[in-house]
Design a protein around this nucleic acid. Structure first.
Length: 159
DNA sequence: GCCAACGTTGGC
DNA sequence: GCCAACGTTGGC
């Protein structure tokens, strides 16, 4: 079981949007960065991920989602009409991948970026690194537990 | 393979 | 809206 943090701009797609989706599930498409793609390819069904709101008045973690399908080709890359179109993507070499994510649990307490910076024990958390722009990053299990505790919710096995 | 120019991200 | 940081592109 691995832990992750995935960023989204809430104006475009928020944690609440995910909750309102049929089956609370959505393909996480449009990732066009190799490092983030590689992380997605190492995800396994059942992994847990923080939903991080970025580029908004209060950046931070709204809750937890579950990876419900491992990486498969992101077909939007092959769609000429898509904002995410990549002319180099083909059926033989899809180049870009996506996973499905499913809403898992809301944090009773939103964990803001400001709070993340204050919390002890989060040294090394990638999202706190200066200039970090990666939209998908791994989270250390110990960091995951600290943040969940702050959010007021713990996964089974961490209680 | 180097690196300057350019585009994007994301906090503030 | 600014700007630092960083990824990507493309000329050479």
């Amino acid at each position: 079981m691995n832990y992750w943090l995935m960023k989204s701009e809430p104006d475009v797609f928020s944690f609440e949007h995910l909750r309102q989706r049929p089956k609370k599930t959505e393909p996480w498409n449009g990732v066009r960065n190799y490092q983030a793609r590689n992380y997605m390819q190492s995800m396994e069904a059942g992994d847990l991920a923080f939903f991080y709101h970025s580029s908004c008045p209060e950046p931070g973690i709204a809750g937890v989602m579950r990876v419900s399908r491992a990486a498969y080709p992101d077909h939007t890359a092959q769609d000429a009409g898509s904002d995410y179109h990549d002319p180099k993507a083909t059926p033989e070499n899809p180049r870009w991948y996506m996973v499905n994510v499913t809403w898992h649990a809301a944090f009773p307490n939103f964990v803001s970026l400001e709070k993340l910076k204050e919390l002890p024990g989060l040294e090394g958390l990638v999202v706190l690194r200066r200039g970090n722009r990666l939209s998908i990053t791994p989270v250390d299990p110990a960091h995951f537990a600290i943040i969940c505790r702050e959010g007021g919710w713990l996964p089974d096995g961490m209680k």
